[in-house]
Nucleic acid binder design. Structure first.
Lengths: 341, 341
DNA sequence: CTGTTAGCGCATTCAC
DNA sequence: GTGAATGCGCTAACAG
C-alpha cells in the first residue's frame, strides 16, 4: 500500500505565497500580467509545495483540455502505425496529447468511440472511417473534425490519392502484356477502396483491357488468401489488391496452388507497407500515411486556433514502386489456371 | 464557419424534464436511487436533447476520469501494435479511454510524456520503458503504474519471458552443430535485451559453446544491417538477434555480402512479428505481446478499483518458432566469411 | 498590477 | 424518492 500525495491546489499556493488565487493562476498562464517579483515568488512557493496545475479543472473552466482524438480502424494494420506516430509527433509540437481509438473495422465501435471521446477532446481525426456520411456529418457538427481518406464536402480532409499510383500500376501491367486484370477489393465503406477500384476501371478501359472486381471484405491476409479462387476464376493474369496485407494473402494462396509469381501471375499491392520483406518482394503503390497523419493534425490544430473551418481538401499523390511480383504475361496461361483450380 | 452546438448540460435536461439537476445526475449514475418512472422520463428528455454527460466535469468532481495512459517506445515497431490493440480492448471493456504516448526510444521524451499524462489519467502502463529505475519509481509514487517488460520490485509488472524461448533457440542451434554463436543486442536500457543476452550466455555456457555479443544500439532494420560486419568478424556461424526487425536487417546485410541463409549462416529473431513474410521465413522466438497488453491494463484497473498495489509479477513464457533461417552448420565455413568481409 | 467574484458541469452531502 | 445547497480546482471578467 503506497501513500500517494493528493494534489496540491492553487489555494494552498496562494495562501503560502500571500497572494490571491487568481495571481497564482496568472503566474502559470499569463506571467506577463504580473510583476516579475510576484511571479518568481509564486513560482518558488509553488515548486516547494510541489504544486502541479490540475489539467481537468483547467479544462472545465476553459473548455480547452489540450487533447485531440485519433481514431483508426485497425492499429495492427501496418498502414496506420506510421500515421499515428506522425500525428503524435505533430500534436506534441503543440503540447497536445492524443487519445487513440481502435474500431476493429466496426462502424458501431467507431460511433461509440467518437461519442466517448467527444467530451474530452478538442477535436478529432478520423482515419479511414467506416462510418456513414450522415454519422460523420453529425459528429462534425458537434466538434472539430478532420478526415483522412474520406472525401466529404465541407469537412477538412486529407486524401491519399492512390488513384494516381493505381493508374501507373495498370499501365505497368498493360506494358507487360496483360489484357485481363482483377481488382481484389477492400471494405465497401472505405473511400480508398472506391477510389482504387474506379481508378482501375477507368485506366483499364482507357487502355483497352478487361478488368474484374473480386471482393475480399476485410483488408487482411486471410481475406486475400480466401479470394484466390475467385481471382483465378475470372481468367485474369494479373491482379491489384486493395492493400499489401490482402496482396500478401493472395501471394500465399497462389503459392499454395503452385502458381508462381511473377512468371505465371503478376500481383500488385497498395500502401507499400511490407517493404521488401515478402517473397518475391511485392510491387506496390506507395503510401503517404505519415504525411497524412501529420497534415491532418496540423489542420485540426489550425481549426482549433482559428475557431473556423475552411473547406480544405489536401491531396497527396502516390506512385508505383516496382519490385518483383510483376512480369511479362505468359501466353495462353489463363486456361491452365482454371483447369487446375 | 460552422455553428457548433455548445454541449447540452445537466441543467437543461433538468428543466426540460421538470426535475432537479441532482435527479438527472442520479439517473445516469445511480438509477436505483430514483423511481423507475422518473429515470425513464429523464432519460427520454436527455436523449431528445442530445445530452451527453460531460466527462471533464464529472472527473473534476469525482477525481476519476476513466482514462489510462499507455506509453510505448516505438509504435512503428510491429511488436507494439498488437499490444496496444489488446490494451485498448481491455480498457474498453471497462469503459476506459487510452492516451497513447510514443517516446521514440527517448528517455527524456518518456519522462515528459509521463508528466503530461499524469494529471489526466488515473493510471499508466509503461511498455518497455527506457527510463531509469529511479525515474520509474518516482513516477510510481505519484500515480498507479504497471510495467511491461521491466522488472522492478514493488511495482506491478508483466514480463514476457523471452529467456525460455532464447534457451530453446540456443539448444536448436547446438543441435544443428553450431559451436560459436553471436547475439545481436538491442537498447542497453531495455530489460528484454538484458534478459535475452543473459539467457543466451547461460544457455551457451551450459551447452559448452562459444557466444559473443555484437551491439546494434536500436531495434531496427538499419541497426541490424550495420551490425553484419561485426557479426561475421566474431567468426560465429549463427546469430540470435534482439528482435525481428534487427534480424531482418541482418538478413539483408548477409544477402548483400552473398552469404546465403540458412546454408552458410543461421539466423534467429525474437518477438516473431514478421510472421512468414521474410525470405527465407525467419525462425524466431514467439512473443506474447497481446497477452501482455491485456494483462497490464487489467492489472491497472484492479489497482484503481482496490486503491492498493500488490506486488504482482506476471510472467509469460515464450517458445521457439522454427522456420527457414536455421540449418546445419557447414564445416569450416567461418574462415571463408572473414576472408570475404 | 492585483484582489474579488462568479461560474465551468457535475456529484454529493444534507434536508424534506 | 427527490430537491436544495455546496464544492471539485481553476480561469476570467470586473473592479480597484
Amino acid at each position: 500500500m503506497i501513500k500517494r500525495a493528493k494534489g496540491v491546489t492553487i489555494s494552498q499556493v496562494a495562501e503560502a505565497a500571500g497572494v490571491a488565487r487568481s495571481s497564482v493562476s496568472r503566474a502559470f498562464t499569463r506571467p506577463d500580467m504580473l510583476s516579475p517579483e510576484t511571479v518568481e515568488r509564486i513560482m518558488k512557493t509553488a515548486e516547494s509545495l510541489g504544486y502541479v496545475p490540475n489539467h481537468t479543472a483547467r479544462a472545465l473552466s476553459t473548455g480547452r483540455h489540450g487533447n485531440i482524438g485519433l481514431i483508426v480502424p485497425d492499429i495492427a494494420n501496418p498502414f496506420f502505425p506510421p500515421m499515428i506516430q506522425a500525428a503524435q509527433l505533430e500534436a506534441d509540437r503543440s503540447d497536445f496529447c492524443i487519445f487513440l481509438g481502435n474500431t476493429e473495422e466496426n462502424p458501431k465501435q467507431e460511433d461509440k468511440l467518437v461519442g466517448r471521446f467527444a467530451s474530452q477532446v478538442e477535436g478529432l481525426v478520423l482515419a479511414s472511417p467506416r462510418l456513414s456520411d450522415e454519422r460523420i456529418r453529425a459528429h462534425a457538427s458537434q466538434l472539430p473534425l478532420v478526415l483522412i481518406n474520406r472525401d466529404l464536402d465541407g469537412i477538412p480532409r486529407v486524401l491519399i490519392d492512390s488513384g494516381s499510383g493505381v493508374r501507373e500500376a495498370v499501365e505497368h501491367l498493360v506494358k507487360l502484356g496483360h489484357s485481363k486484370i482483377a481488382y481484389v477489393s477492400g471494405p465497401s465503406t472505405s473511400w480508398s477502396n472506391k477510389q482504387r477500384r474506379s481508378a482501375m476501371r477507368s485506366a483499364a478501359s482507357s487502355l483497352g483491357i478487361a478488368m474484374e472486381t473480386v471482393p475480399a471484405v476485410l483488408p487482411s491476409y486471410k481475406s486475400g488468401r480466401n479470394a484466390v479462387g475467385a481471382i483465378l476464376a475470372t481468367g485474369a493474369t494479373a491482379a491489384v489488391a486493395f492493400d499489401d496485407l490482402t496482396a500478401q494473402g493472395v501471394l500465399a494462396g497462389l503459392a499454395e496452388k503452385r502458381i508462381s509469381v511473377p512468371s505465371d501471375f503478376s500481383l500488385i499491392g497498395c500502401d507499400d507497407v511490407l517493404g521488401a520483406v515478402t517473397y518475391p518482394a511485392l510491387t506496390s503503390v506507395s503510401n503517404r500515411s505519415m504525411e497524412a497523419g501529420r497534415v491532418a493534425v496540423s489542420l485540426l490544430l489550425d481549426m482549433l486556433q482559428s475557431r473556423a473551418v475552411r473547406d480544405v481538401r489536401y491531396v497527396l499523390e502516390t506512385h508505383l514502386v516496382i519490385r518483383e511480383t510483376t512480369a511479362l504475361q505468359p501466353k495462353n496461361s489463363s486456361e491452365s489456371f482454371t483447369a487446375r483450380v
